[in-house]
Design a protein around this nucleic acid. Structure first.
Ligand SMILES: [Zn+2]
Ligand SMILES: [Zn+2]
Ligand SMILES: [Zn+2]
Ligand SMILES: [Zn+2]
Lengths: 137, 137
DNA sequence: AATCAATACGTTATAGCATAACGCTGCTGC
DNA sequence: GCAGCAGCGTTATGCTATAACGTATTGATT
């Protein structure tokens, strides 16, 4: 069941390399991590990675984790362009669990309605320990 | 009703300077912003600011906004040590609205319960436009 | 008072994350 | 052809954060 990722066919070479790297990573990677992993493929400068990441994030194929300054491949084929996504990040093993919750999203909508705030984008990141790491401890 | 902040008496000089700066700022400040504002008070190095910020955040007197790499003074005398706090950040004027929502928190607890994840800390940041900025546009 | 541990401080250097600005390449549509 | 656009490669720079060192201050212990 691992690597059940979709790889669109209309990516540029750099985008494909970056997304491929994220797809095979067991944990979030920083742009510089990605760069180091792709030097053998000819990449040399941070901008090459950042530009690819921008496009991938824009299309919902990858996500940025603000609290880590790092990136993950989208784990859910259906998540693209949906609203709120939450990430549970394990401090032990680094694994990230991506999920959506309609109740939270609706609750946020209610809050926005009463305050007149127009939500454009929400980041929700939960730090802690996953079940597996808790069991091991 | 502005500046209704509490300033504890047991802060060190640097902590007091940093918190005072945050209290008077209309929008989040980066550590380097704070440093520049406090050079006249004798501060010279980023670490002086970061160390003060660490303590202030630890005590709940200030909050770090992950999506901005910036800091705000806590707006709520009662928020310290409570669970989940959400921030609505206006992209127009920079103002930050801090709020808590028991339903979201409870919902998160439910999710954690079913997955076996142990939540240690949650960051929730909403980007968008505040009512005032929408009206002005 | 002398000792010790804990916390904060100041400074220099370095690491890690992100973008500006330039010019070039290779498409697509007219 | 050629204009417009997206992507590319490179160099330089800026912003964010911490490592490592030694000193100073405080407060409790003896
Ligand atoms: Zn996703
Ligand atoms: Zn884990
Ligand atoms: Zn607060
Ligand atoms: Zn506003």
């Amino acid at each position: 069941m691992a690597h059940d990722h979709v790889m669109p066919t209309d990516l540029t070479r750099n985008q494909e390399l970056v997304l491929g790297t994220l797809n095979h990573a067991p944990a979030p990677l920083s742009a510089y991590d990605i760069l180091d992993l792709l030097r053998s493929e000819g990449l040399r400068a941070p901008l090459q990675v950042y530009r690819a990441l921008d496009k991938l994030v824009e299309r919902g194929l990858a996500h940025r984790l603000e609290s880590l300054n790092a990136f993950v491949a989208c784990a859910d084929e259906h998540c693209h362009r949906k609203g709120l996504i939450a990430f549970a990040i394990c401090e032990g093993c680094g694994k990230v669990d991506e999920f959506a919750d309609a109740v939270i999203e609706e609750r946020l909508g209610t809050w926005a309605g009463t305050t007149g705030f127009k939500v454009e984008r929400t980041t929700m990141e939960i730090r802690g320990k996953c079940a597996e790491c808790l069991k091991a401890a």
